[in-house]
Design a protein around this nucleic acid. Sequence first.
DNA 1: GGCTAGATTGAGACCGGTCTCAATCCGATT
DNA 2: AATCGGATTGAGACCGGTCTCAATCTAGCC
Lengths: 356, 356
Amino acid sequence: MSENGNGRREVTVSDVASAARVSKATAARALGDYGAVSDAVRDRVQRAAEELGYRPNALARTMSTGRSHTLGIVIGDIENPFFAQATRGVADVAAAAGYDLILSNSDEEPAAEAKAIGVQLAKRVDGLLVAPASSIATGNLQAVVDAGRPLVLFDRTVHGLEVDAVIAANRSGAKRLTRLLLEAGHRRIAFISTLAHPGEYRLGDVLSSSSVAERVQGFTDTLAEAGVPHPERHVHLNARRDGVETLVARILDSAEPATAVIASDSLVALAVFRAARARGVGIPDELSLVSFDDADWTGLTTPGITVMSQPIHEIGAEAARRLLQRIGGDGSPTATTVFEQRLVERRSVAPPPPVE
Amino acid sequence: MSENGNGRREVTVSDVASAARVSKATAARALGDYGAVSDAVRDRVQRAAEELGYRPNALARTMSTGRSHTLGIVIGDIENPFFAQATRGVADVAAAAGYDLILSNSDEEPAAEAKAIGVQLAKRVDGLLVAPASSIATGNLQAVVDAGRPLVLFDRTVHGLEVDAVIAANRSGAKRLTRLLLEAGHRRIAFISTLAHPGEYRLGDVLSSSSVAERVQGFTDTLAEAGVPHPERHVHLNARRDGVETLVARILDSAEPATAVIASDSLVALAVFRAARARGVGIPDELSLVSFDDADWTGLTTPGITVMSQPIHEIGAEAARRLLQRIGGDGSPTATTVFEQRLVERRSVAPPPPVE
DNA sequence: GGCTAGATTGAGACCGGTCTCAATCCGATT
DNA sequence: AATCGGATTGAGACCGGTCTCAATCTAGCC
């Protein structure tokens, strides 16, 4: 079928060729700007192409060259501002290099991710950017590596996989945040993430997101250094399944209620802020709140939220640059690029309320 | 070239065929699940495919079938939560129907949009979703229609173009918002949008975004009905170029300062809120603020922002559904689907401050 | 004028699928 | 046993580009 839905036939090189009274090969040369063509013929062909409304078929070109000039990107959810920003970073670099983006949402589910990757591979993307849904189940990604497609991970790494990754210094960021709260006098600090995890978190548990894992590590390490017993008990996962509302309720209503919260991302911070407000607990007087990611609204609330800011756009851009290098044939050893995080202090941290 | 960057050769139907000792045609039938194949052969072929790690080449399939199972989407900026949400709506419907998405950002520039559309067409997307950068320059889109590619616009329409569109009832939404402020006693209400426009806005000017145009129309009409003279003077465009900060300053420092602001989208509302805060003008006591789009943070500020909420996700989803129908051959007359907006009242509106 | 190198051009294979059409196979029917 | 019809199978064209290789053309030079 050389017709599209509307029954119109697309103009091909052959059409242009016969209109310009030259061979298909010559027309292709004149249009594709490769090989050698006399000026007279080039003009004639280009005029004919113009007249017929010739539009090259990129797929046919890909078939013979093996290059699609398309990158695949698989993220959790484009509505999540983190991913939106990173995607924009990727898109900018890609567009500048003449590449397009095929986008898929995994909803952080390995099965959906696998499917998305499969389709992207089938569409012969030149390379793949993935924020892996699971840092432990390597299957989905191993397939890409095995297929020999360039692959760059971002935001998270995957253990035991020989690929490039671009991430943020989550552990040190978490340490900084935890220390900040510790220094304000807090001892009962809750770390909240939406990351799915079977059962309660225990020290040594392997988490399916390396970035959350690093944050938890930084958090519990710092707590332990400060002499807080059982730091792992302060880690609260599954916030999506359980609902942040109920989680906050549980944390605040327990025998030893938390006096501060570290939100693992801006979406969690938003929900915690909302939940606190709904329960009438004041921030920061009754509850201190800090978060990862400097979302656009964090400076707008009363009080503004103290956050650990990540260069999200740049993470995406750098990942794209790396991928483009690999596609270009760069065979240097794989590496993980780590971006520092930056503390933005606002007013959501105060000493814990005095015990009555 | 049948090799990818890494030098590995992809497995093809022919490879599978010879491994299973059948013809290419039969192998294709067994793998593609069309035509008739005996059970024994199907098994043999599928086993061989499995063993060799066969992965169909979607491009080759597209070449012969003419269907790419890919949709193109061109938006202003994926970082804008409006577009992120709409894109998610599109992606969900597309994925459910087995379609992928090629995403391009136009930054609201017709030239970038034209380029993006060109590439998408070259990649033979089955259809195109566009939030047109300009509602007046029809050239970019006319080309799509002429090429016979199904096209659906969303968020904005384009005058004189025979295509489907999915939008929100912006004019009535603007009227409602304006009335709300009028009823609270405001007479000097500023409408602020980032839309680029040469010179000051005058009644009858054609705006390049139909959705903003509708909002402005609803705004000025309602003002006029209320007997406010020169309603067009209260329309402030180019907020991106000039900066919302300076715009707010100009509005508040004028001889007859505005007592209320209508933000044309959540990004503007954010900037206005921030600017007001920076200048120390209290919302709503000194300045009332309402906005289009119920962004996730609008309920979190103090006070919460009263907004006109649009079913953004659904707008995207419906646009995708419509496009899929067209791709499926639906030849019914083109139509514009209009979704109602919904007022969400919070606390950012109060009577204007008494004149000293 | 004849010869040769370099520039142009054309023919046709190829990429990896789909699909049409004819050939072959099989069991059932008379 | 011969015939018939449906089920399988194989051969090869086709989609629209790129690219190799050989043929032709041109100009320069002796």
